[in-house]
Design a protein around this nucleic acid. Structure first.
Lengths: 150, 150
DNA sequence: CGCACTAACGCTACAATGTTGCATTAACCA
DNA sequence: TGGTTAATGCAACATTGTAGCGTTAGTGCG
């Protein structure tokens, strides 16, 4: 199964099928990992699709609000977006401390055995690993000294 | 002893013991949970301590770089800082989806059983729970519907 | 104590990321 | 095909964080 059809997914949510929305959703599907607003913009530019910054933000927000995308915090205080595949499927993330890229660890099924203190009502859990990705050289630094390269 | 003495901790790292540093570290100790740069600034103002925005950022960064504070990503792309108590002690966090506050779950010892794909080198893991804190009314929303636009 | 050295401060200016308001365009439906 | 309005695109603004640089004040030493 390749990727679902963006236009179909968008229409199913009651949204208008516009060039920007279908293109953005396609980009997210093809990326396969959470990418920043800026990376989406570059991909659109490569396709010759006009991309106003604000429209892009709003498009991504719409996708998130309609369960077609997820929003995860990146290491540089910029959001990363990835297309939702299996509804309700939980997976962990990996953030590279050197290049700042974020990866989905789809296959990872962490066993989280935890009981929250009373009063806290759990919505969801988010597990993020930090370290170095396969593409980055070097060895892991000591925790707390990890800084993303400028 | 409730909290360690900020001045002693700062001097032990070879840093100069300034009013801003001791005050900021005290504030972090008393907060007991990760607070934003802005909340630190308010606390300093309440003590009548001058607080330049830039100085505050640099002070917090210095504390983080010297293992006296931790930096965790907040829900609103602003960093939260909390004083380090036990060196090397790992703990989970809880983010309230309504008020945005972040809490340390000191007592939580999650059993994370996970194997990373090959090539990834692990530095540290970060476990964050989302939901509603004891102070916020309401019931938890479905995951991913927490930020739906009106 | 008083002085020298320089880390730390605090000001200004700037950069990056994201938001608001509003007029215009184009997707959808009858 | 034409009307309705969701979606777009532009401009201006808000928030969070950085860089440069002259000034202040902690610290060590005589």
């Amino acid at each position: 199964m390749p990727h679902p059809d963006p236009a179909t997914l968008i229409a199913a949510r009651g949204g208008r099928v516009t060039r920007t929305r279908t293109a953005v959703l396609s980009v997210l599907f093809e990326a396969g990992r959470p990418i920043s607003h800026d990376e989406v913009g570059e991909a659109l530019a490569a396709q010759g699709i006009g991309h106003d910054r604000v429209t892009l933000y709003r498009t991504l927000d719409w996708l998130v609000g309609n369960d077609l995308a997820h929003k995860v915090a990146g290491p540089d205080r910029a959001w990363r977006f990835n297309a939702v595949r299996d509804e309700g499927h939980q997976h962990a993330h990996f953030q590279c401390d050197r290049c700042g890229k974020v990866f989905c660890l789809e296959s990872l099924q962490p066993a989280i055995a935890a009981t929250l203190p009373s009063g806290f009502r759990l919505g969801r859990a988010e597990l993020t690993f930090h370290g170095l990705c396969p593409a980055c050289p070097g060895t892991t630094l000591a925790p707390e000294r990890n800084r993303v390269a400028p």
